Amino acid sequence: MISVNDFKPGITFQLDGNLYVVLTAQHSKQGRGQANVKAKVKDLRSGATTIKSFTGGDKVQKAHIETIAMNYLYNDGTSAILMDEVTYEQVEIPLKRLEWELNFLVEGAKVKVRKFENEILDIEIPLNIELEVAEAFDAVKGNTTTNPQKKVTLTTGFELEVPMFIKQGDIIIVSTEEGKYIGKGKK
């Protein structure tokens, strides 16, 4: 058992037959009342993100999740195909579980696959990842007064706002949590 007071990003737990990973946790105490914990959690089976509220001192069942280093090979239209770096065993994960992560995956990317007992749940990708800009659009007139930004499309098809100096072919660092530009990468 694990106390909800110990929640921090990355902790996995079981609740009502579901498996969750904590994305963020906020502890609050008001007056003489009991502390409350609000946690933004991701359901590891469905991929859905929700906010769960707990009373301080509540305990939940710890989920022992195994992580295996794998390489992303390709997307066959219904599943993502990954290969174990050690055994060369290939696994498939339904795309609906990886909707957000697919915005940042390129062939050969190193990821960690989360596994509970013999059930493959989802993948864990690095917090920041370097990707190539496939298309850089011109800035929209009127958006150039303060902190000028323009829209670009990455090689994965993901679109985001970047500073004006970024051009097609540049490598940029993107936050995989928020999908935002962090900085310029190395070629």
Rank of each mutant, 00 (worst) to 15 (best):
residue 2 I to T: 13
residue 5 N to P: 03
residue 5 N to R: 09
residue 6 D to R: 06
residue 7 F to D: 09
residue 8 K to A: 09
residue 8 K to Q: 13
residue 11 I to C: 04
residue 14 Q to R: 14
residue 16 D to T: 07
residue 21 V to Q: 14
residue 23 L to W: 06
residue 24 T to S: 14
residue 33 G to A: 11
residue 36 N to F: 11
residue 37 V to A: 02
residue 38 K to M: 05
residue 39 A to K: 09
residue 39 A to F: 07
residue 40 K to L: 10
residue 43 D to C: 14
residue 44 L to E: 12
residue 45 R to H: 07
residue 46 S to G: 12
residue 49 T to E: 15
residue 50 T to N: 11
residue 58 D to G: 07
residue 58 D to E: 15
residue 58 D to V: 01
residue 59 K to L: 04
residue 66 E to K: 15
residue 69 A to E: 13
residue 72 Y to G: 02
residue 73 L to F: 02
residue 76 D to L: 00
residue 77 G to H: 11
residue 83 M to I: 14
residue 84 D to W: 06
residue 86 V to G: 06
residue 86 V to D: 14
residue 88 Y to H: 11
residue 89 E to Y: 08
residue 91 V to Y: 10
residue 91 V to T: 10
residue 93 I to P: 07
residue 93 I to L: 12
residue 94 P to I: 03
residue 95 L to P: 01
residue 95 L to D: 15
residue 96 K to Q: 15
residue 96 K to V: 09
residue 96 K to H: 15
residue 98 L to D: 10
residue 99 E to V: 10
residue 102 L to V: 01
residue 102 L to F: 05
residue 103 N to G: 01
residue 104 F to A: 07
residue 105 L to E: 08
residue 108 G to F: 09
residue 109 A to M: 07
residue 109 A to I: 03
residue 110 K to H: 08
residue 111 V to E: 06
residue 113 V to Y: 07
residue 114 R to C: 02
residue 114 R to K: 10
residue 116 F to H: 14
residue 119 E to A: 02
residue 121 L to K: 05
residue 122 D to G: 14
residue 122 D to N: 15
residue 125 I to P: 03
residue 125 I to M: 02
residue 126 P to D: 14
residue 126 P to T: 11
residue 132 E to C: 01
residue 133 V to D: 10
residue 134 A to C: 02
residue 134 A to Y: 12
residue 135 E to P: 03
residue 135 E to I: 15
residue 137 F to C: 00
residue 140 V to H: 08
residue 143 N to P: 04
residue 144 T to A: 06
residue 144 T to N: 13
residue 145 T to R: 10
residue 149 Q to C: 05
residue 152 V to W: 01
residue 155 T to E: 13
residue 156 T to K: 06
residue 159 E to Y: 04
residue 159 E to N: 00
residue 159 E to K: 09
residue 163 P to M: 02
residue 163 P to K: 09
residue 163 P to D: 08
residue 163 P to S: 01
residue 165 F to I: 00
residue 169 G to H: 11
residue 171 I to A: 07
residue 172 I to E: 13
residue 172 I to L: 05
residue 178 E to N: 12
residue 180 K to A: 12
residue 184 K to H: 13
residue 187 K to I: 12
residue 187 K to E: 12
